[in-house]
């Protein structure tokens, strides 16, 4: 999906943070991308490099921490690991799974100088 827009959001967050935290140069950015968030890490890397060119984050390293997916089955109440967002409950086969973890996409921290 739309990784370019999301990479622009990353840059915007960096720029907002730069004003608040008073830094001029970014060395590295750590993102937390949930396994169920539908962001392709490779597409994100490509777009991050493209949108940061000419900015204070040009050349910064991008670390992506992929977090695991988990959910709860609304039919049988089992807690389940989720590899995909719209899977079936491995216990009862229901499609009524509610995602409880692994759908986030956020900037965790920035290494600055």
């Amino acid at each position: 999906m739309h990784e370019m827009s999301l990479a622009e959001s990353v840059l915007q967050i960096i720029q907002d943070s730069s004003a608040a935290e008073n830094f001029q140069r970014v060395r590295g950015v750590t993102l937390e991308i949930g396994k169920l968030s539908a962001v392709e890490p490779e597409a994100m890397r490509f777009c991050f490099d493209a949108v940061t060119r000419g900015s204070i984050a040009e050349g910064a390293t991008l670390e992506i921490i992929e977090t695991a997916g988990a959910g709860i089955c609304l039919a049988c109440s089992a807690s389940v690991e989720m590899q995909e967002k719209y899977g079936l409950c491995p216990h009862c086969g229901s499609a009524h799974l509610k995602v409880t973890a692994g759908d986030q996409m956020r900037v965790k921290d920035i290494a600055v100088e």
Binding site: L6, S9, Q12, F23, L31, M105, R106, K108, D109, V112
Partner: peptide, 16 residues
Amino acid sequence: VQSRIVQVEKDLLNKN
């Protein structure tokens, strides 16, 4: 060079 880590914890869709 003073290097430091800034904790951000901001969702990418936060602004939208």
